[in-house]
C-alpha cells in the first residue's frame, strides 16, 4: 500500500477546475518529482495534501488516514511537512527560534507553557543551523538573511520538523547553480529516511535527485516513469509543445 494515495481528486476555485480527477500515489521512502507546464496543478496538488485547500471529490489517503477533510495542523501532526514556493520564515524571530518553532513534536499550548529553552535542544538546533551554513546567523533575526539563506533556513526547518512526508514546492527557486547542487545533495541524503515530493522545473536538478517523475497536465496525471521514459513520452512532448519541450519549461 502506498504511503500517500490520491484518488480521483477534484479541486475547484469558484468554477475554475485546478485538479480534475487526479490519481497520484507515492511509496514510502520514495523521492518523487512532480513536473508539468504552468497551470498544470502541481502546487494545488501539494495544497490538497497538506490541507490548504479541500477537494470537492475524491480521496486523499495518507498512511491509512483519510486526510481530505483535516485542517492544516492536523495533517501536519500526522507527519506531513510543507515548504512553500516563496520562502516563508518568521522574519522577526532569530534563526534559532525559527528552528525551535519548526521542532514541534509536542504542539499543545499547555505542554509548551512548561517548556523553557533547554540546552540539549539548543544543541541540536545549532547543529542543524551549522549544517545549512547558518551557524554565524544562529542568533540573528531571520529577516536579515539573504534569499538563498532564507531558502536554506526553511529547509533546515523542515529537517527540524522531521516529518515522514515532505512536500517541497520549487526548493531551488532563485538559487545559484552551486546552491542548487547543494540542495540536490541534501535531498539525496534524505532519500530513504523521508518520503519526499518535489515540485520542480529545473531538469538538471531533477535528474540529480529523482527516481520516478510524475508529469501533470491540466489538472490530471499525464505520465509517470523514469527520466528517460518521460523524455521519450509522446504525450508529454505534446503537452509541453510551444514551450520548447520539457527542458525549456
Amino acid at each position: 500500500m502506498p504511503l500517500l494515495d490520491l484518488k480521483g481528486v477534484r479541486v475547484e476555485f469558484s468554477g475554475f477546475v485546478a485538479l480534475s480527477d487526479l490519481d497520484f500515489a507515492v511509496e514510502k521512502g520514495e523521492l518523487r518529482c512532480l513536473i508539468g507546464p504552468n497551470g498544470a496543478g502541481k502546487t494545488t496538488a501539494l495544497d490538497v495534501i497538506c490541507g490548504k485547500v479541500q477537494a470537492v471529490a475524491g480521496r486523499v489517503v495518507y498512511a491509512g488516514h483519510d486526510i481530505g477533510r483535516l485542517q492544516e495542523h492536523q495533517v501536519s501532526r500526522l507527519g506531513i511537512a510543507r515548504k512553500f514556493q516563496v520562502p516563508s520564515v518568521f522574519r522577526e524571530l532569530s534563526v534559532r527560534n525559527n528552528l525551535d518553532v519548526a521542532y514541534s513534536k509536542r504542539p499543545g499550548v499547555f505542554r509548551n507553557l512548561g517548556n523553557w529553552r533547554r540546552a540539549d535542544v539548543d544543541d541540536g538546533l545549532a547543529k542543524l543551523a551549522e549544517f545549512v551554513g547558518l551557524k554565524e546567523q544562529f542568533n540573528q533575526s531571520a529577516g536579515a538573511l539573504s534569499h538563498g539563506q532564507t531558502q536554506w533556513l526553511e529547509i533546515a526547518m523542515l529537517l527540524a520538523q522531521d516529518a515522514e512526508l515532505i512536500l517541497m514546492d520549487e526548493p531551488t527557486a532563485g538559487m545559484t547553480a552551486q546552491e542548487t547542487h547543494k540542495t540536490a545533495e541534501l535531498l539525496n541524503r534524505l532519500k530513504g529516511r523521508h518520503t519526499i515530493v518535489v515540485v520542480e522545473h529545473d531538469m538538471g536538478f531533477i535528474k540529480e535527485v529523482a527516481d520516478v517523475i510524475s508529469v501533470m497536465h491540466q489538472g490530471r496525471l499525464l505520465a509517470e516513469g523514469t527520466v528517460a521514459e518521460i523524455e521519450r513520452h509522446p504525450e508529454v512532448k505534446s503537452a509541453y509543445l510551444g514551450s520548447g519541450g520539457i527542458h525549456g519549461a
Binding site: 520564515v89 518568521f90 522574519r91 522577526e92 524571530l93 527560534n97 518553532v101 519548526a102 514541534s104 504542539p107
Partner: peptide
C-alpha cells in the same frame, strides 16, 4: 510570536 509573524505558516508545523 511566530503566529504574530506568519499565522498561516505556523499551522503547517502542527500547531493549532
Amino acid at each position: 510570536q511566530a503566529i504574530r509573524d506568519d499565522e498561516m505558516r505556523v499551522r503547517y508545523f502542527g500547531y493549532d
